[in-house]
Design a protein around this nucleic acid. Structure first.
Lengths: 260, 260
DNA sequence: ACAGAATTGCGTACGCCGTAAACAAGCAAG
DNA sequence: CTTGCTTGTTTACGGCGTACGCAATTCTGT
């Protein structure tokens, strides 16, 4: 087990291990270090200072170990990031395994996904290089599809709806992550950051060329609400978009019902 | 003008120049090099080999110039990336300036935005560090809000709807960008990539634990359609999600109409 | 025409990054 | 004890972003 080279699945062995299909020879001394400890240290680092701060030397130093030691377990940095992401997101909460009707099931799925992303905002900033073939992400997918089981939609529609929803959740969280990163960098609170953004826009966008932008600005939307507001307000903003999406799905479902 | 230090707006001077508010003293020799040429070279590099290939030395080499020469114009790499993004996206097409009804206006806005992103997939991978305060992005925002002028929604709702829509567009394009990046890295076509992903998933997700995932896989959704299919099919996938979102917005608009 | 100032562009250098390669230390099996 | 495998370290390379200071060039005021 030297962390490199591919196997019959075409995925790196550390990822294969995450799937539980790695040959656990483990005829090994394994003193001190382990994949789990490495991934955990990486997550701690990313959570505290953003993925930008995650470097092989940094993670290794946290474990009191030389940088190259990590390569006995992970093959490359990208692989470590992938494993970090999978471990941080984790599986969906088990109560999502058996959703009741599609609408509440999908809403709970989306809110749970959002919660996980907001608790680990750094995962949104990890450079993605491949489709999500990591075990926990597939469980999330499975549970999301289960919510649509009784919807009457065909397979393509179910996948399309889930894709739409997860893109919305990720998009909303990504905005929050960018804001949080900018705020940390500037040493300000996200709320102040948002207000500063509004003021900047107000100063830059003149009223003749940008009447509608100024109308929104005048309404004070950015000062009160937004993702930088109180948690409850931010959640309400998210729920607003979520209800729009679900209404759109409902229209599709009802159309199918009417046809049948 | 040495590219560093902030001004009264709190934004880097090169960005201020993009807004047209930079003091154009230009009591300067300015031989050969210029901000426009630098940004253009950066865009060419990113378009050809992805943002990962964009480094200061690389861009400088393209212009036959030393790396440090660029710092007379841009202050930092992040600033260059921001300017590249703004220049590549450009302003929305002028026919979006006066949208007719909200639904077709919003649909055209979304499709135009998608087209621009797909023509410059690398912008999705540029690490975002601040809210979009770049001139062209505000024009896009303005035009999107204009489409909602006759919708009867209040300012918060209009912004929420536009946010939802742009997050969907960006999310869809980001998936395509990741796929394209992975395909280029592996030297395969995106279509083959997608099919390979389906096969990988089929091999990894056993039927007992993942019945719904396998149902989707069995339907052959990933083989035929998906973002890796023919352009027309990919566009249809996008339109599917778009119609869902617009249906959801329509529900909100109609509710407002009914209340009034 | 000329002096001086301002500004551009460049060379060098530093510290950090990811990681390839060869090597040393510890344990298992013979 | 020897042999061999696994683990972690050391060293080194090339590339990155960029701080600093110097040389060349062009503009400004006379």
């Amino acid at each position: 087990m030297d962390g490199n080279s591919e196997n019959s699945w075409g995925i790196p062995p550390a990822v294969a291990r995450a799937w539980g299909v790695g040959h656990d020879v483990t005829t090994a001394p394994r003193r001190g270090l382990s994949l789990e400890r490495i991934v955990r240290a990486g997550i701690d680092c990313a959570a505290a200072e953003g993925i930008g701060a995650v470097s092989m030397s940094r993670v290794a130093a946290m474990l009191g170990v030389s940088a190259m030691a990590l390569y006995r377990y992970v093959g490359a940095k990208d692989e470590l990031l992938l494993l970090m992401e999978d471990a941080a997101v984790g599986p969906p909460p088990p109560e999502l395994a058996e959703p009741a009707d599609w609408r509440t099931g999908l809403a709970e799925w989306a809110r749970a996904y959002r919660r996980v992303l907001h608790d680990n905002l750094w995962v949104l900033a990890v450079p993605v290089s491949s489709p999500p073939a990591t075990p926990n992400s597939v469980v999330w997918m499975e549970y999301g599809l289960r919510a649509l089981r009784g919807s009457g939609l065909d397979a393509g529609e179910r996948l399309g709806v889930l894709t739409l929803l997860s893109e919305y959740v990720r998009g909303e969280a990504a905005v929050a992550a960018d804001l949080a990163a900018a705020a940390r960098e500037a040493g300000l609170s996200p709320a102040h950051m948002n207000a500063a953004y509004g003021r900047l826009l107000a100063g830059l966008a003149d009223r003749e060329r940008f009447p509608e932008v100024n109308a929104v600005l005048d309404a004070g939307v950015l000062e009160a609400g937004g993702d930088g507001g109180t948690p409850s307000e931010a959640g309400e903003d998210f729920d607003f978009g979520l209800e729009r999406v679900l209404d759109g799905v409902a229209a599709l479902v009802d159309r199918g019902r009417a046809d049948a």
